[in-house]
Design a binder for these strands. Structure first.
Lengths: 260, 260
DNA sequence: CAGTGGTCTAGACCACCGC
DNA sequence: CGGTGGTCTAGACCACTGG
């Protein structure tokens, strides 16, 4: 089962009756189908959480055998785009929940039943993007971006300090609304307010000593070791829609990686 | 496609002509087949690197359609047990190469063309297992284990300090041979000398300051921040066959995690 | 109960590999 | 060229879900 996805998917709508609409360039039919379905999903024909038509219907619509259509769906499933539920249907996966940063840390304190993490926006600004940020977000050099500084707390104790960069035409609604009223989880709010689904992310982990100012915000001594997470988050279409630099107490860092 | 693997696989040999040999308890045929093939692999019928019989032959042997047999193979492929090569065959995957610890660090120095990492065994001993080690390795409390202390170097600079615990009946050959003659990569040597294939590992990443002695071995000042990797390595049958604690310069640590 | 995805079959033909 | 895995078909039947 090759993992590549072909380019130029077929037309979303059913084909004209003659002149075969799927001139398979040199690849598999199911790969082509998957690319077509992916396009219809990223274009919003089936929003996150919605159910696709039944397998039989999709197979008939594309004039293809059931097994072939199922192979296409399987591709999209292990790309994380779809989710199948036996007896219910095939659904477009929702976005990440935004609480995922805490998975890198162990902040439990002796038998605490964990309270929900709280979020406080400390600063918000519209600034020209740095060269690196523009590059990562696919913006022209110096394009305006929205930056946030955010402190996350557990049981009233500050535990994570985050600096977030968002591309600006897309996140304009957040440049105006009152941060005091924002949700504790950003990604569901991105979805609701800006229509942006954060679907996948790459987290680069590292360690560095905390600056005096950053350490103070986290209630730690200056020069305390900090765990650093540099995140690039992507939407359904694979475009980078967020840069996030997260710092926390290195001594609370714990993460399990699977090898092979 | 459920991911579970059924218990009590069918008999390895072809079935007696009557009295159906595969009394599917309540699960899928391909899951049952996969369990049977897995057993034959872990029992050494097809050693790592060897090719399985062709799909058609296996399907006929088990009295099953091609598609069903292919589903079973697909299960074992994404469990990492098998590897398929178009036009060549289906092969039992070899073990890990043992260089995988370095993937957590960036030790490049300005334009160096990287030399192969070197390994030096600093200490070897047979000792009673700690309670935690015995538990993890599935040994009785206080059973004898082989411990190694090992320093890995890049271009002559020490970069990683490792403390390794190995269960003893299994690794007895290593308790006697001369460590000076050992390979730089341990896992291929485990395979060759002890017949142990390291197939999968779980690495728990963390952070702690280095002790004065450990820091000295790494050429770092006492109390320098250290990245810690606590590894449990497993063989083809899923048994834990190695515990390894690795320390390195936290400031050289870099790892990228994929989020969903 | 009707509708969904999951399993399984028995074929055909294609694409890749190595000799 | 012969052997391998990869794709595709057109069906049948099973298992799960929800009203």
């Amino acid at each position: 089962m090759p993992e590549v996805m072909e380019i130029s998917p077929p037309a979303p709508a059913p084909a004209p009756p003659d002149a075969a609409p799927q001139p398979l360039p040199g690849q598999s039919r199911y790969g082509w189908l998957a690319a077509g379905l992916r396009a219809r999903i990223t274009q919003g024909e089936w929003p996150p959480g919605a159910a696709l038509p039944a397998e039989a219907a999709l197979a008939k619509e594309h004039g293809v055998a059931l097994g072939t259509l199922r192979q296409a769906l399987a591709l999209l499933v292990d790309q994380g785009l779809l989710e199948r539920r036996h007896g219910r249907g095939t659904f477009v996966r929702g976005g990440l929940d935004g609480a995922s940063m805490l998975r890198f840390f162990r902040f439990r304190h002796a038998g605490d039943l964990q309270a929900a993490p709280r979020s406080a926006i400390r600063a918000r600004a519209v600034v020209p993007a740095s060269a690196a940020a523009a590059e990562a977000l696919g913006l022209p050099a110096g394009a305006p971006v929205l930056t946030l500084e955010r402190l996350r707390s557990l049981d009233g104790r500050p535990v994570l300090l985050e600096r977030i960069t968002l591309p600006l035409p897309l996140f304009a609604p957040l440049a105006e609304s009152d941060p005091a009223g924002w949700d504790d989880l950003l990604y569901p709010m991105f979805q609701r307010v800006c229509g942006v689904t954060v679907h996948r992310a790459e987290d680069q982990l590292g360690f560095a000593l905390l600056s005096a100012a950053d350490a103070a915000l986290l209630g730690l001594p200056a020069g305390h070791p900090g765990a650093q997470v540099q995140r690039r988050a992507f939407d359904l279409a694979g475009r980078c829609v967020e840069l996030r630099h997260t710092q926390g107490d290195a001594l609370a860092f714990a993460y399990t990686a699977q090898v092979r």
